[in-house]
Amino acid sequence: LKGVVVAGGVLAGAVAVASFFLRNKRR
Protein backbone atom coordinates (compact mmCIF):
# COMPACT_ATOMS: atom_id res chain seq x y z
CA LEU A 1 0.00 0.00 0.00
CA LYS A 2 2.85 2.37 0.83
CA GLY A 3 4.35 1.82 -2.62
CA VAL A 4 1.05 2.79 -4.23
CA VAL A 5 0.97 6.07 -2.28
CA VAL A 6 4.58 6.84 -3.23
CA ALA A 7 3.88 6.02 -6.90
CA GLY A 8 0.81 8.27 -6.83
CA GLY A 9 2.85 11.13 -5.36
CA VAL A 10 5.57 10.72 -7.98
CA LEU A 11 2.97 10.62 -10.75
CA ALA A 12 1.28 13.79 -9.43
CA GLY A 13 4.67 15.51 -9.25
CA ALA A 14 5.52 14.49 -12.82
CA VAL A 15 2.17 15.85 -14.06
CA ALA A 16 2.75 19.14 -12.20
CA VAL A 17 6.24 19.50 -13.70
CA ALA A 18 4.97 18.63 -17.19
CA SER A 19 2.15 21.19 -17.00
CA PHE A 20 4.64 23.78 -15.70
CA PHE A 21 7.00 23.20 -18.64
CA LEU A 22 4.08 23.29 -21.12
CA ARG A 23 3.01 26.67 -19.71
CA ASN A 24 6.56 28.02 -20.06
CA LYS A 25 6.85 26.82 -23.68
CA ARG A 26 3.69 28.73 -24.66
CA ARG A 27 5.25 32.12 -23.75
Rank of each mutant, 00 (worst) to 15 (best):
K2E: 01
F20H: 12
G8T: 04
A18L: 08
A16V: 06
L22V: 01
L22E: 02
A18Y: 04
S19E: 15
V17Y: 02
L1P: 04
A12R: 12
L22M: 04
V5E: 11
L22H: 14
V17S: 02
A18M: 14
N24D: 05
K2S: 03
V10N: 15
A16G: 02
G13Q: 15
K25G: 06
R23P: 01
L11C: 12
V15N: 06
A12Y: 15
L22S: 07
A12D: 02
S19K: 13
L11V: 15
L22N: 03
V5C: 08
A16T: 01
V17A: 14
V17R: 14
V5T: 10
K2D: 06
R27K: 15
F21W: 12
V5I: 12
F20S: 12
G9I: 08
A16M: 03
A16E: 03
R26T: 07
N24F: 07
V15I: 07
V17T: 09
R26N: 04
R27H: 05
A14R: 13
V4W: 04
V15M: 10
A12L: 12
R26W: 09
R27V: 03
V4K: 09
F20T: 09
V5S: 01
L1D: 08
V15G: 02
F20Y: 00
K25Q: 06
R26S: 04
A7L: 08
A14I: 11
F20Q: 10
A12Q: 08
G9R: 12
V15S: 06
V17E: 00
G9C: 10
V15A: 12
G8A: 11
V17I: 10
V4G: 00
A7H: 09
A14T: 06
A18S: 05
N24A: 08
N24W: 01
A12C: 05
N24K: 15
L1Y: 02
G9D: 11
R27S: 07
R27Y: 08
G13A: 05
S19D: 15
F21T: 11
L22C: 07
A12F: 14
G9A: 08
G13C: 05
V4Y: 13
G13N: 08
F21S: 03
A12M: 14
L1G: 02
A16Q: 15
A18W: 12
F20C: 13
V6C: 09
N24L: 10
G8Y: 14
A16R: 14
V10T: 14
G8W: 12
G8N: 11
V5H: 02
L22P: 03
V6Q: 03
A16P: 01
L22A: 10
G3C: 08
L1I: 02
L11T: 06
K2V: 09
R26A: 03
S19R: 10
A7W: 01
L11P: 01
V4P: 07
L1R: 08
K25A: 05
V5Q: 14
G3V: 10
K25R: 07
V6S: 13
K2N: 02
R26Y: 02
S19T: 10
R23K: 03
K25F: 07
G3H: 11
L11F: 10
G9V: 11
L11Q: 04
A18K: 09
R26G: 07
S19Y: 05
K25S: 05
K25Y: 07
K25T: 08
V4C: 05
R27W: 08
V6L: 05
A7T: 12
V6E: 09
G8I: 15
K2Y: 02
A12S: 10
N24Q: 10
F20W: 01
V17G: 02
R27A: 06
V6T: 00
A18H: 14
R23T: 12
R26F: 08
A16H: 14
G13Y: 02
F20V: 10
G3A: 04
A14N: 08
